[in-house]
């Protein structure tokens, strides 16, 4: 039974990873890419965790913790960058809002 779980979960996670990679590559906007890469990182946490649960070991727990801690850095720094960009380049951008 554990094999079935491994293939099913692994398959779903692999497809998810590919779809997210597609969104990261295609965009269209920087915000979309940030969201997708954020979810990709979470997918990685879930993959590492699921592997531990299926194979019944605990060797990669530190990896999960580190991923959970640093996960925020990328999206926050890019969010800062995105929000600065339009207002500094042209104040006309505010008209849309």
């Amino acid at each position: 039974m554990i094999d079935v779980v491994l293939y099913l979960a692994g398959g779903m996670l692999a497809v998810a990873g590919l779809l997210l990679l597609y969104r990261v590559v295609v965009g269209p906007s920087l915000v979309d890419r940030v969201i997708a890469s954020d979810v990709l990182l979470t997918t990685l946490i879930i993959v590492v965790g699921a592997e531990m649960a299926i194979n019944g070991h605990t060797r990669t727990i530190p990896l999960m913790v580190v991923l959970a801690v640093i996960g925020i850095l990328g999206s926050v720094s890019v969010a800062r960058f995105v929000q600065r960009a339009p207002s500094s380049s042209a104040s006309g951008g505010e008209g849309e809002l």
Binding site: I35, I72, S75, V78, P86
Partner: peptide, 24 residues
């Protein structure tokens, strides 16, 4: 792991969402 996720996920979602709204 759960605590960090609970604390950081809304913050990054908020910041990204705010940036997304402002960038139109």
């Amino acid at each position: 792991v759960i605590v960090f996720q609970l604390l950081t996920a809304p913050i990054s979602a908020h910041m990204v969402g705010r940036a997304g709204y402002r960038a139109g």
